[in-house]
C-alpha cells in the first residue's frame, strides 16, 4: 500500500497484551491535512486501544502536532475520519464536542498554563467547566489529589511563572488529570526538559497509565521517551504511517528512515 510497506509491521510480534485485545478508543482513518501547498498529513491512519500507550514518532515538522490537534477537534482534517470513544469528531456540535473533550486530556507542548491564574485556579478551570453534580464541594480535594499524583502539592498557590519547566509540565499534566481522562494526548511531553526531568516525566506517564487505566497517544521525537513509555510506536514520515510496531521491532528494522531514529 505504501511505497515502503515492507518496513511496516501492522501488529506487534510480542505476545498480545490485554490492551491489544480490548476496546478501541481512538481510530484515525485515512486523514489528510494540508496548509496551502504543504501537505502535512496524507492518508494517515492509526488505532489506539484502551489502556495502551502509543507513541507517534517523527521528525520536527512532520505533522505530529497537527495530528493531535485534529483528534481533539482544534483543527479539521481535509479528508478522512476520526472516531474518539465511538463518536465521529467531525459531526459533533459544540456541546457534544465539549462533553467528549472532558474525557480526553491534552498535554500541550508549551504546557499552556494560564499565566494569570495560580496552580489551584488552573486546575479548577476545567473542573468548573465540566462540573459533575456528584463532585460538587470536592474541588479542593480533587485539586490536591491531582497535585499529589504529579508530586507537587506544595505549589498549589504559586503562579506558573514561579515554577521550573519540569514543574510546569507536571502541573499541566495534573490539569489533564483533574477530570479523569479516558484518553490522554501528550504533545512532545519531554521537549525542552533536561534529561533527568524528562525521565521523571516518562515515569509519570507510565504511572498515570497504571493509575487511571487511560490510553495515551504520545507525540515525541525523544527516543528515551519512546523507549520508556511506548507499548506501540508509529513512525510518521512524509505525512504517512511509515512504520509501526513495538520499540524493539522498529529498533531492529534495517530501513534507513526507521534506522535513523534508532541509531
Amino acid at each position: 500500500m505504501l511505497p515502503m510497506s515492507p518496513v511496516t509491521s501492522p501488529a506487534p510480534a510480542a505476545p498480545p497484551t490485554p490492551a491489544s485485545v480490548i476496546e478501541v478508543v481512538l481510530t484515525v482513518a485515512g486523514i489528510s491535512k494540508s496548509f496551502g501547498e504543504n501537505h502535512v498529513l496524507q492518508d494517515f491512519s492509526l488505532t489506539l486501544h484502551r489502556g495502551e500507550n502509543m507513541v507517534v514518532l517523527g521528525k520536527s515538522g512532520s505533522g505530529k502536532s497537527v495530528l493531535v490537534k485534529c483528534i481533539i477537534g482544534l483543527l479539521a482534517p481535509d479528508a478522512g475520519t476520526i472516531t474518539v470513544l465511538g463518536q465521529y469528531v467531525a459531526t459533533l456540535d459544540h456541546t457534544a464536542l465539549d462533553a467528549l473533550r472532558a474525557k480526553v486530556g491534552f498535554l500541550f507542548q508549551s504546557n499552556a498554563l494560564y499565566d494569570s491564574m495560580t496552580v489551584r485556579e488552573n486546575l479548577l478551570f476545567p473542573l468548573r467547566r465540566h462540573w459533575l453534580a456528584d463532585r460538587r464541594g470536592q474541588e479542593d480535594q480533587l485539586v490536591r489529589q491531582a497535585l499529589d499524583d504529579v508530586g507537587l502539592p506544595q505549589t498549589i498557590d504559586q503562579l506558573p511563572a514561579e515554577l521550573s519547566g519540569g514543574q510546569r509540565k507536571r502541573i499541566a499534566l495534573a490539569r489533564t488529570l483533574i477530570l479523569p481522562p479516558e484518553i490522554i494526548l501528550y504533545d512532545e511531553p519531554t521537549t525542552g526538559l533536561d534529561p533527568v526531568t524528562a525521565r521523571e516525566i516518562d515515569q509519570l506517564i507510565r504511572h498515570v497509565q497504571q493509575k487511571y487505566h487511560a490510553s495515551a497517544l504520545i507525540i515525541s521525537h525523544d527516543m528515551n521517551c519512546v523507549r520508556l513509555t511506548a507499548d506501540r510506536v508509529i513512525l510518521l514520515a512524509e505525512g504517512r504511517c511509515y512504520a509501526e510496531g513495538t520499540y524493539d521491532e522498529l529498533a531492529q528494522n534495517p530501513d534507513p528512515t526507521v534506522h535513523a531514529f534508532f541509531a
Binding site: R101, V104, A112, R129
Partner: peptide, 11 residues
Amino acid sequence: SEQIDAMEVSG
C-alpha cells in the same frame, strides 16, 4: 503560548 487552545480543549 496555546492558552487559548487549552481553554477550548477545557470546554
